[in-house]
């Protein structure tokens, strides 16, 4: 069982990352909104009951979508890769 500190570290990292994206795309809020939509779609799929024939968005698809959204912002993309579970 992992120690609770890891949970709060992950939470803190997630907050910093969301802040960084918000700041980076202050002039282009539609990019930030699309990023949130991708995350929500992914999360919705994760909540589907197991054993459903259609699994929805895979980790790989999430990464591909975010990569095209963050095109040219390699630091944001590589940081995103650190959150994504291995596909």
């Amino acid at each position: 069982q992992p120690p609770p500190e890891s949970d709060s570290l992950e939470f803190h990292n997630a907050i910093s990352y969301v802040n960084k994206i918000k700041t980076r795309f202050l002039d282009r809020p539609e990019i930030y909104r699309s990023f949130l939509e991708i995350l929500h779609t992914y999360q919705k799929d994760q909540l589907n009951p197991k054993g459903r024939p259609f699994r929805g968005m895979s980790e790989e698809e999430v990464f591909t979508e975010v990569a095209s959204l963050f095109h040219g912002q390699e630091d944001l993309l590589s940081e995103f890769g650190q959150f994504l579970p291995e596909a």
């Binding site: 992950e10 997630a14 929500h40 959150f83 291995e86």
Partner: peptide, 26 residues
């Protein structure tokens, strides 16, 4: 200071649960 909307907060939630899942599977 963090000025987060509910949308932001749920993004933080999804990202941190992704990271937890990643840690659990590694």
């Amino acid at each position: 200071s963090y000025d987060f909307t509910p949308m932001d907060s749920s993004a933080v939630y999804v990202l941190s649960s992704m990271a937890r899942q990643r840690r659990a599977s590694s």
